[in-house]
């Protein structure tokens, strides 16, 4: 699959270029003299040295290029990087610093959802976005959030199991007594005066 770097290779007519700033993983990164049609995936991989998101189909079907844009999972290959403005991009390289991400990765392995592994960085990115939005997603929510990750090795079901495992570990199970305690004496109410 060719990236959009063909701009230089084609030559001939003048290639319209531009320079802009991208907010990636909490840093402002300057992109200089880049072809305006470059997709975000190409910019991340080839210009910023972030190869975590993978180049699969270039058509927004395979989900391997998934990154988070303002906390939402999106297909980086479908985004014109130069038109993003000041929106915040987060890639798997930065997500990897969160302890929650390790839980998701472990759950995917335990559920048998990791086989060839090519789609997994995208899956982890989507699952992290989902669990940040919904602490305990229903099966329908999980399947809808992962419908852009057609894993042909393990199939979709182990992925769904993994999300359930990760969600269960992340949310401390409220017992009856802790719930009652919160009602009677909310932990934020402070001590005696």
């Amino acid at each position: 699959m060719s990236g959009p770097g063909f701009g230089d290779a084609l030559g001939g007519d003048a290639t319209p270029t531009t320079s802009y700033v991208l907010r990636v993983n909490g840093e402002a990164r300057l992109i200089e003299n880049a072809w305006i049609g470059e997709n975000l995936l190409y910019v991340l991989r080839e210009r910023l040295g972030l190869p975590g998101a993978k180049d699969g189909c270039g058509q927004g079907v395979c989900g391997t290029c998934t990154v988070q844009l303002d906390g939402v999972a999106v297909a980086a290959c479908l985004i014109a990087a130069a038109t993003l403005g000041d929106r915040e991009i987060r890639t798997i390289e930065d997500l990897d610093n969160d302890p929650e991400t390790a839980d998701v990765q472990r759950a995917l392995i335990e559920a048998g959802a990791v086989q060839c592994g090519f789609c997994v960085p995208g899956v982890v990115t989507s699952v992290c976005a989902l669990l940040a939005r919904v602490a305990e997603p229903s099966e329908v929510e999980i399947r809808r959030a992962l419908d852009g990750h057609p894993c042909r090795c393990a199939g979709p079901h182990p992925m769904v199991d993994a999300v359930r495992i990760a969600a269960r570990r992340r949310v401390p199970r409220q017992t009856h007594s802790t719930m009652m305690f919160n009602v009677i004496a909310p932990p934020t109410s402070g001590g005696a005066e």
Binding site: G60, L69, A73, V74, A75, I79, G148
Partner: peptide, 9 residues
């Protein structure tokens, strides 16, 4: 429509 990533954009 499409996938979650497409619906988001």
């Amino acid at each position: 429509v499409g996938t979650a990533q497409v619906r988001a954009m």
